[in-house]
Amino acid sequence: MGTERALMHIKKAYILAIASGIIGILLTILSVLGIWNLGLDLYELLEVIIIFGLAFGISKKSRVCAIILFFYYIINKIIILFSNGSLVGLAIMVFFTIEYFQGIRGTIHYHKNLKLERINNENLS
């Protein structure tokens, strides 16, 4: 994977993480205000903060943040699936999971390509 493609996957991953965080904020507010009974409370905002933090880390090309977000998302969705047994939104979950995985690949390849560039520049000197 080239650097441009790696950067594209990184960008997609952190944009989706930001979108996920915004959705989390909106659903929490709707639930807390009683507009839509989802059983969410203000503690859900901690999850949103974690997601935004991981999105920031991914935007800075952090492999660790990309991996944590991927597994956090999968574990969270498994818990939701088992708690309510609904498969609503399964296609979206699969899409997010694939794109978060691509974000992992993007960060790994970005750093690999960066290291190769440094080695090539040192050999030219």
Rank of each mutant, 00 (worst) to 15 (best):
T28S: 10
I29F: 03
I29H: 03
V32E: 03
L33F: 09
W36C: 03
G39P: 03
G39V: 06
L40D: 01
L40S: 05
E47L: 08
E47S: 14
E47Q: 13
E47V: 08
E47N: 13
V48T: 14
I50D: 01
I50A: 14
F52W: 13
G53D: 08
A55M: 15
A55C: 10
G57Q: 12
G57R: 09
G57P: 07
I58G: 07
K61C: 08
K61S: 01
C65D: 07
C65F: 11
C65N: 02
C65W: 06
C65A: 14
F71S: 11
F71N: 11
F71A: 15
Y72D: 11
Y72G: 12
I74G: 04
I74S: 10
N76S: 12
K77V: 14
I80D: 05
I80G: 00
L81T: 05
S83E: 06
S83D: 08
S86T: 07
L87S: 13
L87V: 07
L87F: 15
I92Q: 05
I92Y: 05
M93R: 02
M93T: 00
V94A: 01
V94S: 00
V94R: 00
T97K: 07
I98L: 00
I98Y: 02
E99K: 12
Q102T: 08
Q102N: 14
G103E: 11
I104F: 02
I104Q: 03
